[in-house]
C-alpha cells in the first residue's frame, strides 16, 4: 500500500489563484471576471498583475456569466470567479443558454463549495452544484482535492475548448499530490491498488479516503482508492476495471447524494457491471453553521463514515 504524506495544508482556492496567475503569464487571451469576491477566490494576484484583463463586475453574477460568454467571441478565454452557490444555482439559466447551449469557452470557477465553507451556513453551502452542472450537455465538471491538483486543473482547463465547471473550496487541506503532476481531464487517478473494495472519492473527501484506506488496512481490508477529479466526463473504464476486481464500491463526496459523483458511478455500474454501492454524501439535507470539521462529522462525511460504508458494502457482496 502506498503511503501518502504532506508537508503542509493549503486551501484549494489558492491553487486556483496560483494557476490563474501562471496562466495569465502564459496566455494573453486568458481573462478573469469576479463578482466582488476577488480575495476570497484568490484572484487578487492576477488582478494586480494583469489589470487590463481583470474585470470586476460587482455583485451581479448573471451579468458576469453573460459577459464571459460574449468575451469568448473575439477569442478570449474567460475565467469567472465567485462562490459555488452563486456560480451555479443563481445563474443556471445564463449558463444553460449563453454558455452551454451556445458552446462558449467559459471556465466557471467556483470556490467555497459544500459544507466546508463553514460558519456562513446553508445559504452559502451549495451541495447541489455538481448535479446542476453535470446535467448540462457538453459541460465538463471538475472537483479537485488539493492545492497542487487545483493549480494543475486550472491550467489544464484553459487548453480544453468548451465550457468547464471547476469546483474547489475554502479550508486548508493536506496538499499531497505532486506539484509537477500532469492533469488529464476525464482521467481517474489511482491512489492505491487493492482487492476487497473500491473507494471512489472526489474533492475534499479524497484525503479522507486515503485515511480510511489506512484504517481499513489495519483491519486487514485491502481498499483500492481512486481519485476522481473529473465527474464529467467520468472515467468509466477505470471505475469498471476496479469494480470488476473488488466487486463492491463506496463513493465519497461533499455533495448531495442525489446528483453527485455517487449517482454518476451508480449509473455507469448499472449499465455495465451492477455491484453493491454505498454512498458517503449528504442525504437530502441542507447544511448549517459550524466549523468545517464539525459539519463534516455531523453530516457523515468523515473518515469514519467511509470506513463504516466499506464494512457495510462488503457484507453485501
Amino acid at each position: 500500500m502506498k503511503k501518502y504524506t504532506f508537508t503542509e495544508k493549503k486551501d484549494t482556492r489558492s491553487g486556483f489563484g496560483a494557476g490563474l496567475l501562471e496562466l495569465g503569464k502564459q496566455n494573453p487571451d486568458v481573462v478573469a471576471l469576479c463578482a466582488d469576491l476577488t480575495e476570497s477566490l484568490k484572484m487578487d494576484a492576477f488582478a494586480k498583475e494583469f489589470p487590463d484583463r481583470f474585470f470586476q463586475v460587482g455583485i451581479a453574477e448573471a451579468n458576469m456569466i453573460g459577459m464571459a460568454a460574449g468575451m469568448t467571441i473575439g477569442g478570449k478565454i474567460p475565467f469567472t470567479g465567485t462562490f459555488a452557490n452563486f456560480s451555479t444555482g443563481r445563474v443556471y439559466d445564463q449558463i444553460r443558454q449563453s454558455v452551454a447551449y451556445s458552446d462558449k469557452n467559459v471556465k466557471i470557477c467556483a470556490s467555497h463549495a459544500g459544507l466546508t465553507l463553514g460558519e456562513d451556513g446553508a445559504t452559502h453551502q451549495i451541495l447541489e452544484d455538481i448535479g446542476l452542472m453535470k446535467m448540462l450537455p457538453g459541460m465538463t465538471v471538475i472537483n479537485t482535492c488539493d492545492f497542487n491538483q487545483t493549480k494543475a486543473a486550472t491550467m489544464a482547463v484553459a487548453k480544453h475548448h468548451g465550457p468547464v465547471y471547476l469546483r474547489f473550496g475554502r479550508p486548508a487541506v493536506p496538499n499531497f499530490t505532486a506539484p509537477d503532476q500532469v492533469f488529464e481531464i476525464g482521467k481517474a487517478v489511482m491512489l492505491n491498488e487493492g482487492t476487497d473494495v473500491t473507494i471512489i472519492a472526489t474533492g475534499h473527501l479524497v484525503w479522507k479516503a486515503i485515511e480510511a484506506g489506512e484504517q481499513l488496512a489495519a483491519q486487514g481490508i485491502s481498499a483500492e482508492i481512486i481519485n476522481i477529479h473529473t465527474i464529467k466526463p467520468l472515467d468509466e473504464e477505470a471505475i469498471l476495471k476496479s469494480v470488476a476486481k473488488t466487486k463492491c464500491v463506496v463513493t465519497a463526496e461533499e455533495h448531495q447524494m442525489h446528483g453527485g459523483l455517487g449517482d454518476a458511478v451508480a449509473q455507469a455500474l448499472a449499465r455495465h457491471l451492477p455491484a453493491p454501492q454505498e454512498f458517503v454524501a449528504v442525504n437530502d439535507s441542507f447544511g448549517e453553521s459550524g466549523t468545517p470539521d464539525e459539519l463534516m462529522k455531523k453530516y457523515g462525511l468523515d473518515t469514519v463514515n467511509i470506513v463504516e460504508a466499506v464494512n457495510k458494502v462488503m457484507k453485501r457482496k
Partner: peptide, 16 residues
Amino acid sequence: QGMSVAIGAALAKKLN
C-alpha cells in the same frame, strides 16, 4: 441575457 453578452463582446473588441 443579450446585453451582457454584447458587453462582453465589446470588451473583447477593445482588448483586441
